[in-house]
Each structure stands twice: as structure tokens, then as C-alpha cells.
Nucleic acid binder design. Structure first.
Length: 585
RNA sequence: GCCAGAAUAGCUCAGGGGUAGAGCAACUCUCUCGUAAAGAGUAGGUCGUCGGUUCGAAUCCGACUUUUGGCUCCA
């Protein structure tokens, strides 16, 4: 019986991908005999291999390497495994400095193995397919050339990495390539430009977002909803400054530990002011403004607080990673007895919020105490237990990241899956044992003792910018009616209907719908096309027929026609869809 | 920050050592139209910025800015 038969389909595919990496290395060495080879593992969608090459690669090289790989695959080369001694391996790779380094890092006592196919031998744990004929020459594609540091360390030499994608067959490869195209079509940067939602400006600073009127409308809807829900759920809103004197950041510890992530200070009146990278210290200032009693707790203070963080230039990415963004932040200050209830409540709230925006598939990640941590172990235990109980009570699927918490407290992160199955982290609920100490926060308990409250930091959407980017990609720009920047486009058939359409627009606006009549002198078909391209959910085409009968036929952005009756029933129907936040049109 | 690619009209893009092109959008005029593109015309660019090479640079070279993909997947 063949070993391979016992492998799961995933393991088999991984083996193929890893073997592909070796095939690619052979092709590259054939092209550049003096190349140094580093590592070449299988990854989620294929494989890569890192090389130190005598010259820079250009995109055209990929096609050449790809052809060579196909030849190698077709020539049916066996993958041969050999066990060798360390000295034999050292001799074999005497010209390959990276391989020698890897060899040294293999623990004593572990068997050293080589894999050979054709003209290529690699220091490798394996396993591999038996022969290149098990690989489908049409199942892979070299994707891009990238740079990577040797062993991922910035101080190490830079290597050339070639990424390839590989699948079981051509069909799977094509499906993957189609998916990539879909991802490209959904790209929030592209949609943001096409739908005129936001922009960034190099003259005015990278990573800083400008919300255009249509983007601002959507953001406004999100924020209004967010505020309303928070009031319903027992929160109060606070507003705090955008800058604070260094005292604040020294006390919070940010200047010690988070200095690199902060914008540099502005000097004024001989004091240094910093743009806030977080809202927490400000909320604590409000807490500490008066003496607090256990009767006051829990306190739940929320703020759409705009923060500024220095992100590495190379890390910036559309709305998903920016330098100025608005957190949907809140801090909960609770007594020890309230922790369990409070955590459960905030988790439920968070799930409801995510559901409202159309995210149904949600997974939790619990991060526990790392080795270096502040705060008494009992508090950590209480907090971690509360988080875990809440997740389990909600029946959420979850993973535990042991020791993965921040030094100041355990946390739950929630990740949603979008329309095409990608995971995004949005919500986070995080205990903080550090700041209450540093700011000496207290409350007076029943017994007259001054005690330390538990402080919980939480964001449901994460940041508005990032959330908006994720939403945009999730819906591919076609927002549900309640979020759409424009809900109804009124399209006159001819200019004899303009007055009527104008009147209709006014009436719909009085109903608080975002509606407008297209009174340009374009032809009707063009108006429909424009509304369609703008992904306006509902189009009312109004001509003599409608003016006479008072009955409307609604064109959905899907192209479907619907009979919604007269004006009153149209309004009623639209209200029911919008007010209930219905996702479908 | 580091490596590599990119930057041409509002947008999408072509071109390329001899001085700038298309489509769409904009503007003007004509058409008044029944569910995704009516016709004609006009205008629009220091070819990202700064420097260098050259008789001549948008084109070649360098720096900078912005942007894209990487820099997490471990023999």
C-alpha cells in the first residue's frame, strides 16, 4: 500500500505544491547556475522559493521559468529521498550558504534528508510526490516576484522570492484565477474611485482619508445607527480632544511602549502635545474627574474617536491600513462582580451589530496571558474565564491563542467572513489591567474600601475606515438599501415629466429617503445606465403612463422590474425594506 | 523602513530621444426619447517632482514623492 493513499486531500495538494517549488528551483538553477537557494515551502495557494540571484528578475523571466518547469514536469523525474550524514550534507551544499545555515539549525539527532529530482537536489524534510508526472503542467502559474529577507529578518540579506500558485488540475487553477479577478473587481480602492466615495492625496499626506459626499452619506448612516444602538444598549457618548500633553502619554505608558506608533510631538507653550493614537487615556480622565462609587458602575462610554498612528509607509493600504482613522471605541468600567454579565452583554451587542451589516459567519479568537504581563494572576483568570464563558454561552466557534494576549490583558477578537469567504477581524473586546494602575483609578465599594475597577476596551466595527472598506468589498459596492448613498433614482422618460419627477423627489426626501431625479438632458437609457453603474438600488422610470395611472414600476439594480403599485404603496414598501435594514432589495 | 514594479487629460489606457494620442467624462449645439451608451462640435496635459546625460528628454540615468505587490507561511 502506498503511503500517499493515507494522506488527506489537503496533504496531497500540499505535497504537490512543495514538489512544484523544487521543480521551480531546478528551473531557476538551470537558468542561473550560480544562484543561491534558500527555502521553498508550500503555502495556502501554492508555493514560493527564495533565491539569491546574480541579476534582478523581470516579469518576462517568469514565462521562461514556467516553460522550463513544464518541460521538467513532463520529463517524468523521480523524487528520490536519501538520508545522509551531516558531513555528507555539508559537502553536498558547500557552495550553498543558506542551505549550510539551515543544516546547522537542524536539531542534533534528527535525520538529515535530501530530495533529488533530475538535476536538482535539495536539503528537505519532504515529503514529495513520487515523480513529476504526478504534477499537472497546466495546474500552476507563476504569479509574482517579490523580495523577502532571509528568515524574515530586516537585518538579513534580501532575497528574490518567486510566488507560484498550484492546484490539482487546470480546472482548480482556473477557478482560483477567476476568484482573483473577482477580488480585483471588489477592491475597495477601485470601487471607492468608481463610485466617488473617498480619496487620498499625496500632496496632503499618505494614509489620510478624504470622504466624498457619497462616502460620507454611508458613513453617516453607519454612525447614526451605531450611536442609536449604543444608547439603546446602555452606553453614553463622550467627546474628547484630539491631542494631549506628554504628561498623559507618559502616565499611560504610550511614550515608553508605543512611541514608534505615534505622530511626533508639536511643541506649544514649552509643552509637547501628541496627536492621540488611542482614546483610552482621555476616557480615564473623565472617569477620574470625580470620585466613583460602586453604585455608578458599570460605566459604558463610547466615542467615535479619531486617532492618528504612524504606520510604516510600506504598510499603508487603501482604507484597510491608514494613518488617521476613527475607532468605534468604548470603555467599560465595572466592578469585579459585574465582569461576567458585562462581557456577555458586550459580546451579544457586538454580534448583533455585525449581523445588522449582513455578516452572519463569525468566529471568535480568545487570547490569553502572555509570559510578560502586568496585573495580578487572579484578575487575569477572572477576566479570561469571563471571556471564555461568554463565547461558549453564545455558541460561537472559537480558537484559543494561548499566551497571545497583550501584556495588559486578555481579549476576544471576532472575525467575520465576507461574501467571498475572506476573513476580516472587526470586533475586539479587551481587558486592560495596565491603565487603571497607571492612572490610579478607583471606586468606593459597599464596604467603604477603595477598589480598582476592571477596565474593558472594546471596538465593534474596529475602525470606521477599515470597516467601510470591508463592507465595500463585501457588497462589491452594491450596498443594501439602508446603506446605499443613493436609494432611489427617479428617471423621467422625457422632459414633459421633469416637473412631476422633481415633485416626486421632494416627496421622497421628506420621507427621509435618499432620492434624486436625473434631470440632465441625457437620454433615458443613459440615465438608467448611470444609475446602474452607481449601483443605485431602485430606479423609478417615470413617463406619461405613470403620471396618468399613478402606478410605478420599479427597476432594481439587478435589472429586474417590480410592480410596487401606487406612490403610497411604493413608499410603504421602501420604508419596510430600509427601516428593517433588509439586505436584499 | 527595506526590495521590486508603476506614475501620460477628471477616469481607463496607448505611445515613446525630434516636442502629445484614443475612448469615456466635461462643455456647446441638435435629437425629446419607455428600461445599460443618439449625433456633431469645443476645450482639456510642464507626460508625478527635482536634478543629470544630450544639440534636443515625456522617453535614458539618479534622487525624491505617491502608489502597487512583497517583506507572516521555514530544511
Amino acid at each position: 500500500m502506498n503511503m500517499a493513499d493515507k494522506l488527506s486531500p489537503e496533504q496531497k495538494l500540499e505535497r504537490k505544491r512543495h514538489s512544484m517549488a523544487h521543480v521551480m528551483a531546478e528551473a531557476v538553477l538551470d537558468m542561473f547556475p550560480t544562484a543561491q537557494i534558500a527555502i521553498g515551502p508550500a503555502i495556502d495557494t501554492g508555493f514560493y522559493y527564495d533565491f539569491d540571484l546574480p541579476r534582478q528578475l523581470v516579469n518576462d523571466d517568469l514565462a521562461v521559468i514556467e516553460e522550463k518547469m513544464k518541460e521538467i514536469i513532463k520529463s517524468d523525474r523521480k523524487f528520490v529521498r536519501t538520508e545522509v550524514t551531516r558531513d555528507e550534507a555539508r559537502e553536498k551544499f558547500k557552495d550553498q550558504k543558506y542551505k549550510l545555515e539551515l543544516l546547522e539549525s537542524i536539531p542534533e539527532g534528527e535525520t538529515v534528508t535530501l530530495y533529488n529530482q533530475g538535476n536538482f537536489t535539495d536539503l528537505c524534510r519532504g515529503p514529495h510526490v513520487e515523480s513529476t508526472k504526478k504534477l499537472d503542467p497546466r495546474s500552476f502559474k507563476l504569479m509574482n516576484i517579490a523580495a523577502a529577507y532571509w528568515r524574515g529578518k530586516e537585518s538579513n540579506p534580501m532575497l528574490t522570492r518567486i510566488y507560484g500558485t498550484a492546484w490539482n488540475n487546470k480546472k482548480d487553477l482556473d477557478a482560483y484565477l477567476t476568484k482573483l479577478k473577482d477580488i480585483e473587481k471588489r477592491d475597495h480602492r477601485k470601487l471607492g474611485k468608481e463610485l466617488d466615495l473617498f480619496s487620498m492625496h499625496e500632496e496632503a499626506g499618505p494614509g489620510l482619508v478624504y470622504w466624498h459626499p457619497k462616502g460620507a452619506r454611508i458613513r453617516g448612516v453607519i454612525e447614526d445607527f451605531w450611536r442609536k444602538e449604543h444608547y439603546k444598549n446602555g452606553y453614553e457618548m463622550v467627546y474628547t480632544p484630539h491631542v494631549g500633553k506628554s504628561w498623559l502619554w507618559e502616565t499611560s505608558g504610550h511614550l515608553d511602549f508605543y512611541h514608534d506608533g505615534m505622530y511626533p510631538p508639536m511643541e506649544m507653550d514649552k509643552a509637547d502635545y501628541y496627536a492621540k493614537p488611542m482614546n483610552c487615556p482621555f476616557h480615564i480622565m473623565i472617569y477620574n474627574n470625580t470620585k466613583r462609587s460602586y453604585r455608578d458602575l458599570p460605566l459604558r462610554w463610547a466615542e467615535l474617536g479619531t486617532v492618528y498612528r504612524y504606520e510604516k509607509a510600506g504598510a499603508l493600504h487603501g482604507l484597510l491600513r491608514v494613518r488617521g482613522f476613527t475607532q468605534d471605541d468604548a470603555h467599560l468600567f465595572v466592578t469585579p462582580e459585574q465582569v461576567d454579565d458585562e462581557i456577555l452583554t458586550v459580546l451579544k451587542f457586538s454580534l448583533n451589530m455585525l449581523h445588522s451589516f449582513g455578516f452572519q459567519e463569525i468566529k471568535a479568537y480568545l487570547s490569553t496571558r502572555p509570559e510578560k504581563a502586568v496585573g495580578e494572576p487572579e484578575r487575569w483568570a477572572t477576566a479570561t474565564e469571563a471571556l471564555k464563558k461568554a463565547i461558549e454561552k453564545e455558541g460561537l466557534e472559537y480558537e484559543v491563542d494561548e499566551g497571545g494576549g497583550a501584556f495588559y490583558g486578555p481579549k476576544i477578537d471576532l472575525k467575520i467572513k465576507d461574501a467571498i469567504g475572506r476573513a476580516w477581524q472587526l470586533s475586539t473586546v479587551q481587558f486592560d489591567f495596565n491603565l487603571p494602575e497607571r492612572f490610579n483609578m478607583t471606586f468606593t465599594d459597599k464596604d467603604g474600601q477603595e477598589k480598582r475597577p476592571y477596565m474593558i476596551h472594546r471596538a465593534l466595527l474596529g475602525s470606521i475606515e477599515r470597516f467601510f472598506g470591508v463592507l465595500l468589498e463585501h457588497y462589491a459596492g452594491a450596498f443594501p438599501a439602508w446603506l446605499a448613498p443613493e436609494q432611489v433614482k427617479i428617471i423621467p422618460v422625457g422632459d414633459n415629466c421633469f416637473d412631476y419627477c422633481k415633485e416626486l423627489e421632494g416627496k421622497l426626501r421628506m420621507e427621509e429617503f435618499r432620492a434624486s431625479a436625473d434631470l440632465s438632458d441625457d437620454h433615458m437609457k443613459v440615465k438608467i445606465k448611470n444609475a446602474q453603474l452607481n449601483k443605485v438600488p431602485y430606479m423609478l422610470v417615470v413617463g406619461e403612463k405613470e403620471m396618468e395611472s399613478g402606478e410605478f414600476s420599479v427597476r432594481l439594480r439587478t435589472g429586474k422590474q417590480q410592480k410596487w403599485g401606487d406612490y403610497d404603496s411604493f413608499v410603504k414598501k421602501l420604508h419596510s425594506i430600509v427601516d428593517s435594514h433588509q439586505i436584499e432589495l
